[in-house]
């Protein structure tokens, strides 16, 4: 199925999904924490927009609610909380450079190709017009995980985790027209609770090892041995 045969609205969904993937790359390579939070907010907003357009194009009214919920939660509330957290932890000007940004980005590109290869059999099932997006969403999930692997800063890792959730949500919307409302509410609540817990944890971690660099967490074992 070629893109030229789709109506404009459905093309718009594809464009939005592609930009969501791009924001994943921005998140991955962005060195400044505050800018990364902005990128995350954009990703949430774009996911919400994609959901809304799917709702219009596919005439699925319950997706409007999902879109609104996503927008409130991912584009406004969580970024705001993260901003506050960063401000209170005095990380506004923190720069967390990747070792070899070009290599990490190339690895992410390889992940995109890999996820395309993975979902190929599924795409052949001719689900809906959005089926091609499944590969993109899987790539967003994997890149989120990659980000958690390569970032040393705990806040950046949380961003990676949250963007994985964005990818899952996009997959749900594109593959099956969204999850049941109860599940969606549950997930949203979980994410919120996770965010609060992360916030508490950050303060705990910083109090005990004076940094949020997760590479330093292995100090904990050494200190335990020292006490003995």
């Amino acid at each position: 199925m070629s893109i030229t045969t789709l109506p404009l609205l459905q093309q718009l969904v594809l464009v939005l999904a592609a930009i969501v993937l791009f924001t994943s790359f921005v998140l991955l390579a962005q060195a400044r924490l505050v800018s990364a939070i902005h990128a995350f907010a954009w990703q949430g907003a774009l996911t919400a927009a994609a959901t809304a357009v799917v709702a219009v194009a596919g005439h699925e009214p319950h997706l409007y609610f999902s879109a609104a919920l996503t927008f409130l939660l991912k584009a406004l509330l969580i970024p705001w909380m993260l901003h506050r957290l960063v401000a209170r932890l005095a990380l506004d000007r923190h720069v967390d450079l990747l070792r070899h940004p070009a290599l990490v980005v190339m690895a992410a590109v390889a992940l995109v190709i890999f996820s395309y290869w993975l979902v190929l059999p599924m795409v052949r099932l001719e689900l809906a017009f959005t089926r091609n997006i499944v590969a993109i969403s899987l790539a967003v999930v994997l890149i989120g995980l990659l980000m958690m692997v390569f970032r040393q800063q705990a806040v950046a890792q949380v961003l990676g985790f949250m963007s994985m959730e964005n990818g899952l949500f996009l997959a749900a919307v594109s593959a099956t027209g969204g999850m049941p409302l109860v599940v969606e509410l549950g997930v949203a609540f979980d994410v919120l609770v996770a965010m609060v817990l992360f916030g508490v944890f950050f303060f705990q971690i910083r109090d005990s090892i004076d940094t949020l660099d997760v590479d330093r967490l292995n100090r904990l074992t050494e200190s335990l041995e020292d006490e003995r």
Binding site: A17, V109, V112
Partner: peptide, 18 residues
């Protein structure tokens, strides 16, 4: 280069289909 690569992948994944 990344943008160009994503353009290419977007073309292959989203526009042509399998």
């Amino acid at each position: 280069l990344l943008l160009a690569l994503l353009g290419l992948l977007g073309h292959v994944i989203l526009e042509v289909g399998a």
